[in-house]
Design a binder for these strands. Structure first.
Length: 149
DNA sequence: GCCAACGTTGGC
DNA sequence: GCCAACGTTGGC
């Protein structure tokens, strides 16, 4: 099993929204590095749901990857904000997975706390200029972060 | 292939 | 709202 962190702006789609809908197609990722991580996902992989661009950024809940990666349908929808006229139906440019709610943490584990972990090691979330919306988490990082709850 | 301009992300 | 970081675009 691989482990990932996926960002969402809680004002747009929060862990409470995911709990309500149970399974959500994680569409709209339009960054090649993030897409390449999505393509490495497998059904059952663990996901940290991270709240970004909000008062207290941090990990808010747990989810799992619900299925194998498949083409993001919004790239072919001219009415979608994620429409990509340059994407070829024979070779779709953008990929997504569905994300299944697992649990909401009792409290948000904040970015500040995560940054302060002494043995966190190299982690895309705390690297300079952190902008990736989907990024890998090692087993050790996963344990350390959830150990803060 | 270079690089300036531009747009976006995201913490603060 | 500000601004640093950084990805993308497009002219050359």
């Amino acid at each position: 099993m691989n482990r990932w962190l996926m960002k969402s702006e809680p004002d747009v789609f929060s862990i409470d929204d995911l709990r309500r809908v149970r399974v959500e197609p994680w569409n709209g990722v339009r960054n090649y590095q993030a897409r390449n991580f999505i393509r490495q996902m497998h059904k059952g992989d663990g996901v940290l749901i991270y709240h970004s661009s909000c008062a207290v950024p941090g990990v808010a809940g747990l989810a799992t990857v619900a299925n194998a990666p498949y083409p993001d349908p919004t790239q072919f929808d001219p009415r979608s904000e994620y429409f990509d006229p340059g994407s070829d139906r024979g070779n779709p440019r953008w990929t997504l997975v569905d994300v299944r709610f697992q649990s909401k943490l009792k409290r948000v584990i904040t970015l500040e706390e995560i940054k302060a972990l002494p043995k966190l090691g190299d982690f895309a979330l705390t690297r300079r200029g952190n902008r990736l919306s989907v990024l890998p988490v090692t087993a050790a990082q996963w344990e350390m972060i959830l150990g803060l709850e």
